[in-house]
Design a protein around this nucleic acid. Structure first.
Lengths: 147, 147
DNA sequence: TCTTTTTCCGACCTATTTGGTCGACAAAGG
DNA sequence: CCTTTGTCGACCAAATAGGTCGGAAAAAGA
């Protein structure tokens, strides 16, 4: 529930690199892998999957690679996360996730509103942050406390 | 990252029952297990753990059970989640979770502010929801769409 | 003090998920 | 036709989640 996997983070990082490289021709998987320290073979899997979303396109062979197709201002983190996440089973609880069985949208579930609010809050952030925002490094306030 | 485990949900449900039962003497593990459909043995583990937080107390033997000690208005969902979650390693990234290694609080990490905002947003919800709120079933608006 | 009830505790178990790899194949240039 | 680079399916290992077992310790009643 609300889990952001490594795969998700890799996907975002890869898209970040591709968005940054936009307009300069295809970027190779190997290059992305190096820049973002993502295991090559795993990255291949991820990019192939992302390609299906049409926001990136691939070109094979010599001088090949991936290119960012859409515009980074129009793709949000939420879009990416939703795309990578496996589609929920049709009878999962929207709020609780897998709990099913004894909680199929029971209005009397004391926790439903909580999980839903949490879900909304987090996706509000994800949805209002575009790849462009990430590129521009909108570090609102540099609270990098600790150490 | 941001993952709410089944254990966490069980913990909340158990506390919900205990809070509801407050003032009526100890409530047995077996009873909680039945009411909330939580596997007994697993629940035992969870309650023993929660006891260490002092918000519930145990009494053994005949007529024993658990009692809610504090006041439900003062315990938030966030408190419970933080308590149950395993303490993060001292050099995990506050925002990203386990990513460590190549991201130890690097201010140049383009994603740090995002994860931090997400973290704040979700815990804001968790922290402002008390057990009492859950008891009062503050279903703001009954959007139990779907089916 | 014996028995019952109930919590306590450590070891253990198992399926799923995560994170990742391998090897062969397909296309695109040079 | 050789190299480069993406594509694809199968495979795999470690971690984690989620849960179980068996008994010990304490509390109270008989």
């Amino acid at each position: 529930m609300f889990y952001i996997s490594q795969k998700n983070k890799y996907a975002l990082k890869a898209l970040y690199e591709l968005a940054k490289h936009k307009g300069e021709g295809p970027l190779k998987t190997a290059e992305i892998s190096k820049r973002q320290r993502i295991p090559l073979k795993f990255l291949e899997v991820i990019l192939a999957e992302l390609k299906r979303s049409k926001i990136i396109a691939a070109k094979r062979g010599y001088q090949g690679g991936y290119t960012f197709v859409g515009s980074p201002e129009k793709i949000s983190v939420g879009d990416v996360i939703r795309f990578i996440a496996k589609q929920p089973d049709k009878d999962d609880c929207i709020a609780c996730g897998k709990e099913i069985k004894h909680c199929p949208y029971i209005p009397s579930c004391a926790f439903f509103p909580l999980w839903q609010k949490a879900h909304d809050a987090i996706f509000r952030i994800y949805d209002e942050t575009t790849l462009q925002d990430l590129l521009e490094n909108k570090h609102a306030d540099g609270i990098f406390s600790l150490k």
